[in-house]
Amino acid sequence: MKDRNVNSYNLSYARQLLDAMAPTRKPASKIDQPTDTRPYVRLMPVQKPGNGEQATRPTETVSAEKTRPAFTEPSENFPDWESCIAWCIGITSAEAAFVVDSQGFIIATRGRIPSHGFECTGAELVFTMDQLERIDPEAGKLLWIDLDFNQRRLVGFITPVQNNEYFIVGLVAPDPAYNILKPSISKHIVKSLPSMN
């Protein structure tokens, strides 16, 4: 069970000094932002407006049956992470996929990964995972993280620990129907783990 004790750091003075000295990063201001400032570029085509029509993006109100990507089982184990995430992208229609090791290193990527700031996402996913497991230590290992932001969905599958190492396979903006594919994704990744390490 994880230690839930509060740590013994008093950083108020450090915080005070840093607030005065550290370079400030401009906070995202809604007023300053153009209407579409997503760091990711959607691969899904945007419908061009006809006369008198508004441009629309495909929304999740379209029936799941219609948006569900074609599912194809991999014929054999994945030889490496690249082929694994290529398959994941194919069946979930995700914009991008990546693999993070337990140190937070991004060890494989595919799709439209933003060039700036993405390195942190790996470490933050590992961090988030650990924090989430502390919510209910009796509930077992966390298997999936599903973060629904208002502009994008970020999903991660956490592999079992093998040789003292685990990985998180991340999917950026997968199709809503990805949910029913979870068991299959988990099964094939776990099955291929020995050949991918």
């Binding site: 230690d3 450090a14 550290a22 937070g104 650990d130």
Partner: peptide, 24 residues
Amino acid sequence: LRKDVSFNIMSTAWSSLHGVLETY
């Protein structure tokens, strides 16, 4: 990050201190 103590330090630094670089 796999060690609890190191993880807690990073957790504290990231959440409490302004000015921690993105790269570690």
